[in-house]
Design a protein around this nucleic acid. Sequence first.
DNA 1: GGGCTACCATGACGGACGTCATGAAGGAGG
DNA 2: CCTCCTTCATGACGTCCGTCATGGTAGCCC
Lengths: 198, 198
Amino acid sequence: MTRTPRERMVLSAAQLVRIHGVGATGMRDVVAHAEAPRGSLQHYFPGGKDQLIAEAVTWAGDYAARRVARVAAKLPDPTPGKLFAAMAAQWRDEFTTSGFDAGCPLVATVADTAATSDSLREAVGKAFEGWQRPVAATLEQLGVPPARSTSLAVLMLSALEGAIVLARAHQDVAPLDTVVAELRPLLDGAVDRRRRRA
Amino acid sequence: MTRTPRERMVLSAAQLVRIHGVGATGMRDVVAHAEAPRGSLQHYFPGGKDQLIAEAVTWAGDYAARRVARVAAKLPDPTPGKLFAAMAAQWRDEFTTSGFDAGCPLVATVADTAATSDSLREAVGKAFEGWQRPVAATLEQLGVPPARSTSLAVLMLSALEGAIVLARAHQDVAPLDTVVAELRPLLDGAVDRRRRRA
DNA sequence: GGGCTACCATGACGGACGTCATGAAGGAGG
DNA sequence: CCTCCTTCATGACGTCCGTCATGGTAGCCC
């Protein structure tokens, strides 16, 4: 688990963005949180703050994508609805055990920089795309026709992100449970039973 | 249309938060955008930035709630799915005509201040609640059983907010269209035909 | 007219920010 | 040993921030 200082800085940047947003996350805060030397900033990230945040966003997207694949593999008797429930449960667990201080770094980065930094906005766009892809692929594995798999993946990501925002605002995980309960029949009803894989 | 300087400042704060987030929205920017005297800040908002942003959030919540009622009244032959489509269409129209620079101020405020300011977080919570209420009320008018109306309202708000974030990240309104298309059958299928009002 | 309040103007303060300049360890290769 | 390169250390610069102090108008009320 011993990571290089550079990795620690990217990771810390992602965590701090989740809590404070991009604007209120200082580079000095990042190096302090990462217990990294301050002089390494200009060495590893000559592109300045934008580069650091962009790498944090990319890392977060990859992490989310990996997590989808992992949770899908662990699911016994998986269905689209159960996949969505499992994705939401990860957020539910974090909120209940660690509080509502940290949200999704992609949402925070869009909210803070979509209008000002094209490079960051593009990084978030690619991160969302990389997250959406394994979701759609898993849906197809579960029998969802390819024509609908990406649409449903977009719906799942949208509902999940929105529910995360609502949950943080209300300091209550209820929105997560609600979208899961309401979306489950729709998702499970999208499987084409003739094409379902075992 | 001639508003008082105080109103203009609250309104400008809301617009700037939509674009730049809370952290990157300065008080000097607000007074400049509102063409208001800088000295009025400490007079009208002795509570400082928190008070100004809180009022902007509250105003945005009221505005969203009023807009729901207005769009629902204008809808010929309304259904839950059409209500949701109309709500999404307002965002779609703004994105296509004005670009993707401005998002939802409630999302931006949650992302930036949920962990640091209880007063702002509570203001956003109440704003979401005040927005959700007319949505649920309209659903009931359209024949949705009261037991499900609030759940579906939460789903609608979540999916809409998430789709807004995705649309901004991708600079493309497609996510809005996708969630509308996928959610419409679910929403329209929730009406209890025996109780539907004319 | 004197006093009071509401509203606006202006300048300053202390702090935090991102960035840069400069330089020192410390190992690798000649 | 000397040099090169990576990595880290530290201090400074200029800018912007939110807030405050102080003072100036303008109008209303007694």
